Simulated scan of single mutants.
Amino acid sequence: MTTSAWVGDRVRLRAKEPEDWEAFQAFDEDSDAVRSGWRLTPPNSVARAKKAAAEHAEEELDLDKFSLVIATKADNAAVGSINTHQIDRVHGTFAYGISVGTPHHRKGYASEAIVLLLRYMFFERRFQKAEAWVYSYNDASLALHRRMGFVEEGRRRRSHYANGRYHDEFLFGLTVEEYTERYA
């Protein structure tokens, strides 16, 4: 029996495929969810969504900075995405972002995807700390990161504008030692 570092009990992290365009276009229909992850943009055409998905599927692979689809283990259906960014190899830190489509909330997909991603970054790529920025109005993500053992390290006041208001951003961090104590 073979095992994959990218597969958990409920989800698998996989590369984006051209046919994933439809799921992500549907997720973008929920404006509140889109704002919680980054920023609201004008609607995308089907042609542009297909082209972007195809281009993403053909991007050169980077071992440290990448974006993956969060898919259900049962049927490989896309339920969200997770990415790494702000890679700092000198200090061994990185940040990540995660988004799960509204129909798939509260099913444990996000927490499992985060555990899988951090395991790779900590134990395969030798990073020592993960960071996540969460907007003050994203109660679900704030609760998720606290529940997972992330430490609240800072707050940037009024640094994000969405839906006609300024909002704070919280910085959360988790070290490899904290991860190992909880998940390894």
Rank of each mutant, 00 (worst) to 15 (best):
V69W: 01
Q128H: 12
V46Y: 07
D139W: 06
A132G: 10
K73F: 10
A15L: 04
F27Q: 03
V7M: 05
V100Y: 10
R10L: 15
E22T: 03
S159Y: 10
I114A: 00
A77D: 14
S141L: 05
A53K: 08
L117T: 04
A23W: 09
A113G: 14
F66G: 10
K65M: 04
T3W: 06
S36T: 03
Y166N: 04
S111K: 14
D20E: 02
F127E: 02
Y183A: 01
D9N: 11
E19R: 12
Y179E: 01
V79Q: 02
A47D: 15
P42Q: 09
V34W: 04
A52D: 09
S81D: 11
A113Q: 15
F170H: 14
V90D: 07
E22N: 09
D64T: 07
L13Y: 03
G108C: 10
P43F: 11
R147E: 15
A23Q: 15
I87F: 01
A5T: 09
R48V: 06
N163R: 11
R157G: 09
A78E: 08
L171S: 02
R165M: 05
S36G: 15
A47Y: 04
H85C: 12
A71K: 07
G80E: 07
R157N: 02
G154R: 01
N44M: 14
L13C: 08
F172L: 01
T3V: 05
E58R: 12
T180E: 13
L174N: 00
K129G: 00
E169R: 02
A130N: 00
F94D: 13
T175K: 03
N76G: 13
L61G: 03
A53M: 06
A184S: 15
V7D: 01
R146M: 06
S45F: 05
S45I: 12
A74K: 14
P18E: 14
R39S: 08
M121P: 03
I82A: 04
V100K: 13
I70L: 04
R147Y: 13
P42V: 13
V134F: 04
R12I: 05
F172Y: 15
V79M: 02
D32I: 10
R155L: 08
R119E: 12
R12H: 02
Y109R: 11
P42M: 14
L174F: 00
H56L: 08
V34Y: 04
V115E: 10
G101K: 06
F94R: 14
E181F: 03
E55F: 03
G101M: 09
V7E: 15
D88V: 01
S159F: 08
H145K: 00
A143N: 05
A5C: 03
A95P: 04
L144M: 10
A78M: 08
A162S: 15
D20R: 10
A143P: 06
G154V: 08
N138W: 11
S31Y: 05
S136T: 09
S141G: 09
E169A: 10
R165T: 08
D168A: 07
H104K: 02
D88K: 01
T3F: 06
L116F: 15
R12A: 14
L61S: 13
L174Y: 00
K65F: 13
Q25I: 02
D20Y: 07
I114R: 00
R126P: 05
K16P: 05
A71Q: 06
E131R: 12
R156P: 04
G154D: 07
Y135L: 10
L144P: 01
D139K: 15
F27I: 07
A130G: 01
